[in-house]
Computed example of a mutant assay.
Amino acid sequence: MRLSTRGQVLPEVLARGTLAIEVIGATCVIGDRTLLADVDLSVRAGEVLALIGPNGAGKSTLLAAISGDRALRSGEVRIAGKRLHEWTLRELSRRRAVLPQENGVFFPFTVEQVVEMGRRPWQRTEREDEDTEAVADALRSTDIERFVERRVPTLSGGERARTALARVLAQRTGILLLDEPTAALDLKHQEAVLRLAAERADRGDAVIVVLHDLNLAAAYADTIAMLSQGRIVACGTPAEVLTAEQIGRVYEHPVEVFQHPTTGAPMIVPVREIRMSSREEGTP
């Protein structure tokens, strides 16, 4: 940690390869339901880690536990080597930025005002001087510059999702926690969001992203953790995790896995029944 010229303690930037997040024996129980069961996970600075798995596997719960938004029955989460509960909320807001699955903004804030909210953790620090640049960069990166004066409730679902992501990017922390950031987006913006995540990792950030699209995970993640029934059943490179046998077992649907001819990344195609047209079937 270092002291800024305005008297506020600011976090040091984590060196690439440094352990940014560590989850140790995380168990989360609500009522009689076990949402996470003895989960271990680690993420390093400079890495994109994708959490995948079927609905109800525990992906969002794990991300919420890492962010501090979900209490654990047992186990712990460490951010930059320090237990989660040892950070103040303000300190955490300077360490990690969180994009939740639900991004409802019902008050008539403009897009620019919402993105500017991402800069609040840096008020009265020397990094407050970055506010204008950080907001402009986030607006440009998410392709919403033309919406700055629009009221958020008037936007489409995809435009609201990109506004929420811009707020997170403007926060400029060394850790990004993104819960299904591509869910409401079209093809172009899905690719753009994952490309942004990869670029942030290339600059040294640690990124955890919850994804349903296995091909996006294969293309952009350095590491993939596959969850099923609250447990991590596989963790490794895309090629190690995304096998036809493993996907078929966890998702309960057969798939075929090919190697992309250019990138070498796995490509996942669900096995489907062939649908014959009436002409092919010989119907007049």
Rank of each mutant, 00 (worst) to 15 (best):
R231C: 12
G282I: 11
A234T: 04
G58I: 02
L41M: 11
G25E: 08
G248T: 15
S60C: 05
P153D: 07
V115C: 10
V135G: 02
G158D: 06
M276V: 08
L227Y: 05
A26W: 03
A198Q: 14
L89W: 03
L242R: 09
G174R: 00
D131P: 00
R195D: 13
L10R: 05
S4M: 04
E112P: 12
A50D: 14
R127C: 04
N55K: 06
L196A: 04
R275V: 15
A138E: 01
A15G: 13
Q190W: 07
R33N: 08
P261M: 09
V98G: 02
S4K: 02
G104K: 13
G236C: 06
V77C: 02
D131W: 02
Q101N: 11
P108W: 13
R167D: 00
A183Q: 14
M267Y: 14
R2L: 07
L165P: 00
R127N: 10
A64P: 02
A225Y: 01
A80V: 05
T163G: 04
F106P: 02
R146L: 14
H189F: 12
I79P: 01
L227K: 10
C28G: 03
H260G: 11
T223Y: 00
A161R: 01
A265D: 13
M267V: 15
I21Y: 03
V152N: 10
L187S: 05
T5L: 12
N103R: 08
E130Y: 07
S74N: 12
D213M: 03
A26D: 07
E145P: 06
A57C: 06
E128C: 09
G56R: 09
L227V: 13
H189S: 04
P261N: 11
G236R: 03
T283Q: 09
R44G: 04
S74E: 14
H260D: 14
R2H: 12
V98E: 03
D179W: 01
A244S: 15
P270Y: 04
K188W: 06
S42P: 01
L176N: 00
L89T: 13
E281T: 03
S156T: 12
A26C: 03
E47C: 14
R162F: 00
G158E: 03
R146G: 03
E245G: 12
E245I: 06
E145T: 14
A183P: 04
F147M: 13
R90S: 14
S278L: 13
G236T: 07
R279D: 11
T61C: 04
